[in-house]
Design a protein around this nucleic acid. Structure first.
Lengths: 346, 346
DNA sequence: AATAAAAATGTGCTCGAACACATAAATATT
DNA sequence: AATATTTATGTGTTCGAGCACATTTTTATT
């Protein structure tokens, strides 16, 4: 029923040589109308699917994929990505796939641009990047397109038709998820939305989460809650947050839009008298520790590891199996507490 | 650095023919100690990894895998598995893999045994099964082993050394996860653990969940809660549960250990005055509807789809790439509420 | 009609592993 | 020493797609 036909089979059935079948399948070279029709007739009857194994055996071309992401040494958020890359390398090492990892400094647009220049010079077949900087990304993606280098992105969604593929999360909805959990823990009181970040680079990221978070409470139309936004930088968290805490004695919950929940948790740790619900992002080690201690109630898992893995594997399948690169792959918004955390840690 | 060596390369380096290298690699045929040493010397220096593409090209053997699971028509819990099988079929259709699906009636051990007999007669290379019935499974696995058919299991863990592989969830921990969520919603009162099932087939399954659930509260040592267990069958849910509700006016939460939370939810739906927290299992349509209505607070996702997919793919990789079948693969315990459910529905 | 040019079609080799088979070298047997 | 037998080693073919090149057929040109 679903017998596998080969080019030779088709040739025999159509009464021509495999060379002619090959020309029809790839519409190269010239074929007489008579032969074309005969072959098409056969192709209409059977369901020919080329043997990808054979194709890739002959194919001596080595596809080179560059992955560009922030240095995990600077921000451990990116650490799981390295494992995702490792997995992809392992999975595809049987094929002619070469994967090269590049790191940039997430606090420097210059570093981002420099890394991209290096990649451009290296002329890979494709690049998967975490486009932290919006304007710069548009520039370099244009260059990649001109150099015929396929671009795929992850983690940060760029609103532009210039990029084709994206793997990541729906940030707005993840904010809503956080809100729904907060709404479950608390019945009333003040909730702070805290952005902790060095630069404006994550601005869009954090804003989307905040919007989603607020949107949930707006819909509920529950005026038992009041929401406040607080923007902090890593170096001033301690001082500024202490002041904020003092000035807001009714504070009951905190939603931290970056992976820095542990910074807040460590400040709340000594204040045993204040019971504040904490919800943050990402299973970085410090966060998980506070999760287990009970100071952080929930973490939302962004699954960076899988983001990178999927980003790479769609590229590989594009080259190897000629599949299209999906426009957007949205990963589930995983809810993590102390009880199920261990299963998500890579 | 990580150049790919072929058998021919090794032969040249060792000064022998590729035939001899082949004999050493597969330790077949006879090889002189001199040749063996020369080849081993080369193999110690380089890192030879056979080209799996080439290997599988020549390999004309078609590996046949049978998948046996309960009929989704009888219990929609199993519906996502069909999609998992579809995904696997698609992914591996390039290779010589043939996957056959078989359904049995989950309420009949006879049906289970009959299906297995059919599969045994069909002589596939491997079988992936949902071993609902413990005793019967041990019997038929023995027969599979004798017939040299590789066995992998999913969903229900069989405590026996007779089976090698299992893909599923840690049920005890999933009970704990449910408890931790319940503990978040409620501060005190009575909690019911309800088992809804036709037969004893799921007994172990449900018990493990209950144990985990109770274990969490035991550890907390919080005597604000009291836990009760209630066993129901699908046809008597309505009558028995109504009685139970009346007799337990202080009931604040219900943990349903099967995918039948919707049955309880539909009975609670008209009782607007009683606010009861509901936590259940599985994203079957009815459950999700009540989740969205707010009657079910959380569902724990057992990800049957991925269970089957992984169960198949480990078998495929076993045949194609000679990888070992992992003894146990435990999938994450996904916490689902109304906000993130859509991302998990296949 | 003969030759040149263009178009159509067929043939043969490659990729790397695997294995059957052929040949060669090393022992054993008379 | 000559032949038989065992053991070791090498050669050649296969899998299916893809593409270069050779060959044949058709059409154009003198």
């Amino acid at each position: 029923m679903d017998k596998k036909y080969t080019i030779k089979d088709i040739a025999k059935m159509a009464g021509v040589s495999k060379g002619t079948v090959d020309r029809v399948l790839h519409n190269r070279g010239k074929v007489s109308p008579t032969a074309l029709e005969k072959i098409n007739e056969v192709l209409n009857v059977i369901n020919y699917e080329p043997n990808l194994i054979a194709r890739n055996l002959k194919n001596t071309k080595i596809y080179r994929i560059a992955v560009l992401l922030p240095d995990p040494e600077t921000d451990p958020y990116w650490l799981p990505c390295v494992n995702g890359i490792r997995d992809a390398v392992n999975e595809f090492k049987a094929y002619n796939i070469n994967i090269q990892t590049h790191f940039f400094n997430p606090e420097s647009t210059k570093s981002f641009l420099e890394s991209n220049t290096i990649i451009l010079e290296d002329q890979p077949d494709a690049v998967l990047l975490a486009p932290l900087f919006h304007k710069e990304t548009l520039e370099i993606v244009k260059e990649y397109n001109e150099a015929n280098i396929v671009v795929n992105t992850f983690n940060n969604q760029i609103e532009s038709e210039i990029t084709k593929g994206f793997v990541g999360q729906d940030l707005h909805k993840s904010g809503r998820v956080a809100a729904s959990l907060m709404n479950l823990i608390l019945t009333d009181g003040q909730i702070a939305i805290i952005h902790i970040d060095e630069s404006v680079k994550n601005a869009v990221h954090m804003q989307e989460k905040e919007k989603g978070f607020r949107n949930y409470f707006d819909e509920k139309n529950n005026n038992a809650f009041s929401l406040t936004t607080l923007k902090l930088k890593q170096h001033n968290v301690e001082t500024k947050f202490a002041v904020f805490l003092e000035q807001n004695p009714n504070l009951k919950g905190i939603f931290i839009t970056t992976s820095k929940a542990y910074q807040i948790a460590s400040l709340l740790s000594p204040l045993k008298d204040r019971k504040i619900a904490l919800i943050g992002y990402d299973l970085v080690e410090n966060n998980v520790n506070f999760l287990n201690e009970g100071l952080v109630h929930f973490l939302i898992h962004q699954n960076q590891k899988r983001q990178v893995y999927l980003g790479i594997s769609t590229l590989v399948e594009h080259f190897l199996f000629r599949k299209d690169i999906p426009e957007t792959i949205l990963l589930p918004i995983d809810i993590i507490n102390a009880e199920n955390a261990s299963f998500y840690i890579a």
